[in-house]
Amino acid sequence: MTRRIQYKIEEQHNGKCISMFLKEKEYSRAVIIELKKTKTGIQKNGTWAGVNEILNTGDILEICLTEQRSSENIVPKELQLDILYEDEDILVVNKPYDTPIHPSVNNYNNTLANGVVHYYQQQNKPYIFRCINRLDRDTTGVTILTKNLISASILSKRMKERGLSRTYVAFVEGITKEEGTIDLPIGREEGTIIKRKIDEKEGKHAVTHYCKLEELQVEGKAVSVVALQLETGRTHQIRVHMASIGHPLLGDFLYNESNHMLTRQALHAVSCAFYHPITGEYKRITAPLPKDMAMLMQRSSNESCDLVAKL
């Protein structure tokens, strides 16, 4: 894919060199090096320019990044994508459950990556798969992918610096407090590469905030619908944290083996909010509740509740 970006230099940037200007736009050193490799990578007023050249008010700085290869070892395979938003820089999809993000052993061609690579192959566009917020295989919802190195670099940096606000909805056992914060370290459980646990000695710092949206009665059992936001992004963080306070997720075979109300953990990435990496426009993208969780709502006394509207 080729991405061209134009900037008209304003008074506030007069006298700055191109390198400084691009760094203020959050271009990483690696991206600037990549742009310098071609004659069209960085141009000022239609002419090739070095990164040490000075910008003046009214100049037109054009950035051109061309990526001609696609992700290696990702087999294109048709997948019905639920696209929530797409432009020249990002693709946001509503990931279904039972769908891993990346190919791995025993998951060679049934992943979101396979479907997205196929989507762009059908448009005759090379595509390198870059996922910003990774979800567990059975967690559904908003998943942000980037379409070029520039947007990938900027959003990845913001993700690490908590510049992307992510909200999840979960159905958990019992009636929770109205709101709370769980600040407990998480580590790997001995003898397994998958399961995690609260580990006060060797675990990594993890913080989850939650608030109760609804109380349900499902099959005679009390269920709370909670919205959650993460300060950190540890593996299985929501699942481990909610189980640790006595409110495990419904259908979570790892941390709540006895609950079979759903066939997977009742966890959905309902929204993500961020400033666009290129335009700076504020974006808040939401994904409707998946069918299995929506059907569970219908089996309760609150079937008409619009959870997304409550967030």
Rank of each mutant, 00 (worst) to 15 (best):
V218K: 03
I175P: 00
V226M: 04
K201T: 14
I186M: 03
H209P: 01
D183C: 13
G191D: 08
H209G: 03
V218G: 01
K195Q: 14
E231W: 05
M242A: 09
G187N: 06
Q217Y: 04
T192S: 15
V223S: 08
E231G: 07
L184W: 11
E178C: 00
T176E: 08
I198Y: 00
S224I: 13
Q229A: 08
T232C: 01
T208Q: 04
G191N: 12
A243D: 02
E202M: 13
K201W: 07
T192I: 05
I175K: 07
G180K: 02
E178D: 14
G187Y: 00
D199K: 05
I194E: 06
V223Y: 04
G233M: 04
H236G: 03
K195M: 08
K204E: 11
R188D: 09
G233A: 05
C211R: 15
E190K: 13
E200P: 00
R239M: 07
I193L: 14
G220Y: 07
I193N: 10
I186L: 06
T176Y: 09
R234C: 05
H205T: 03
G187I: 01
H241L: 08
H205F: 10
C211H: 14
K197D: 02
G203K: 03
R239T: 06
T181P: 00
R188N: 14
K212I: 04
Q237D: 09
Y210Q: 07
Q229C: 10
V218R: 03
I238K: 04
V223C: 09
T192G: 01
L184M: 15
V226G: 00
A243C: 05
K212Q: 15
Q237C: 08
V225F: 10
K197W: 01
K195W: 02
P185N: 05
K212W: 07
K204C: 03
T176D: 06
E214K: 09
L228I: 15
H241K: 04
E214Q: 14
D183M: 13
I175R: 08
R188P: 04
I175V: 13
E200N: 02
V218D: 02
V218S: 01
R196D: 08
A227L: 05
G187L: 03
V226K: 00
E178L: 06
S224C: 12
D183K: 15
V223D: 08
H241G: 03
I238V: 08
T208E: 02
L216E: 05
E202I: 10
E173W: 09
V223K: 01
I238G: 00
